[in-house]
């Protein structure tokens, strides 16, 4: 099974960061904004062309491109389902 990445999150779904698979400046940027292992991240929307998606990380909304979010691996949990459920409920 392929590892779950941030890219697989659809708007309304949430996940927990496991590790970052990128290096160099992108890695530092991501660490700076708080995408450390264990951080929770919620996909909150996507732009008209679907590519940059907006994510809620530690209180701020950050837009990330698909190529970048592919580098962020998430924990294999079904927390995302919970996310969808709650979004549907309310």
């Amino acid at each position: 099974m392929n590892p779950k990445t941030l890219l697989t999150l659809q708007p309304g779904e949430a996940g927990i960061v496991e590790r970052l698979s990128c290096t160099g400046s992108l890695r530092r940027r991501l660490l700076d904004i708080g995408l450390l292992p264990g951080a929770q991240i919620v996909c909150v929307g996507c732009s008209p062309c679907k590519d940059p998606k907006a994510y809620l990380v530690r209180g701020a909304v950050i837009a990330l491109r698909a190529t970048d979010s592919r580098q962020i691996l998430l924990k294999q949990e079904d927390s995302s389902e919970a996310g969808i459920r709650s979004a549907r409920e309310s």
Binding site: G12, A14, V44, S47, P48, L56, G83, S86
Partner: peptide, 24 residues
């Protein structure tokens, strides 16, 4: 996690964003 996502997804900011950056 659930509370976090649902709270933001239903905030006013997000609703405005859904219009201003909406697909159509």
């Amino acid at each position: 996690l659930q509370e976090t996502s649902s709270a933001y997804l239903h905030s006013l900011d997000r609703r405005i964003d859904r219009i201003l950056t909406g697909r159509f």
